[in-house]
């Protein structure tokens, strides 16, 4: 019987992905491409919010969208109908995207001329937060029907976000959702997160969100 060798590793399982994500961010900086990672639970309005956002920004910024789903291309079709270049990424049953999968999508997407690449991550409040995609900024959508306690139940998602969009605020009167309490819960986990209440369906608040995004893209692209 051969001798068994023990190799001490002492390395986080996420370390390898974190390195690849940092490398991807450096390359995006050099190329002057801004990557936004948009995350939320299923049904919170990612695609509708994106459609609205694209309407406001597409004349001044060249936008490309990557739709990540376990299956189907309905989201990519919706984005194509909104007039932006979009590709569908299939995760093959996986609940999140990592840096390498994001890179593969980007290689295809930025074949055209793209300044703002938006990754619509798999609908899920748990796993996508654990894997750095290489995005410049992370955004999360929390919709009113989901409840104002979600920042307490899924703390990591709200810790890794630069901005949180509170969507479907038009239906607030019908739910026990307290916007102030929700904002306070978000701040407990992440004092720096920007919170923007919106209604993607009516367009309320979407200007402010688009303004924030426009500013982020300009800063990233100008100083690259």
């Amino acid at each position: 019987m051969n001798q068994v060798r023990i190799i001490e590793v002492k390395q986080s399982v996420f370390a390898d992905n974190d390195r690849r994500a940092a490398q991807l961010r450096r390359e995006l900086k050099e190329k002057g491409i801004f990557l936004l990672n948009l995350m939320s639970a299923p049904g919170s309005g990612k695609t509708t919010t994106l459609t609205r956002t694209v309407e406001l920004l597409k004349d001044e910024i060249k936008i490309g969208v990557m739709e990540a789903d376990i299956d189907s291309d309905v989201d990519a079709r919706a984005m194509a109908a909104a007039g932006v270049k979009s590709i569908q990424l299939y995760t093959g049953g996986m609940c999140h995207l990592d840096a390498d999968m994001t890179r593969q999508g980007l290689d295809e997407l930025i074949d055209g001329d793209v300044e703002l690449a938006i990754l619509e991550n798999v609908g899920n409040l748990v796993c996508p937060a654990e894997f750095d995609t290489g995005a410049v900024k992370n955004a999360a959508i929390l919709s009113v029907p989901e409840g104002d306690d979600k920042p307490l139940k899924y703390p990591l998602m709200f810790q890794v976000c630069d901005v949180v969009l509170i969507n479907k605020i038009d239906v607030t009167p019908y739910f026990d959702f307290d916007l102030e309490r929700c904002t306070e819960y978000i701040r407990m986990r992440n004092p720096d997160a920007k919170v923007i209440p919106i209604c993607a369906k009516t367009g309320e608040g979407v200007e402010e969100w688009a303004g924030w995004l426009r500013q982020q893209v300009r800063e990233w692209v100008t100083f690259s």
Binding site: N2, V4, R5, I6, I7, E8, K10, V13
Partner: peptide, 11 residues
């Protein structure tokens, strides 16, 4: 909250 590889054993 650790998820890390402590060590590996090889033949």
């Amino acid at each position: 909250n650790e998820v890390s590889i402590k060590e590996i054993a090889a033949y």
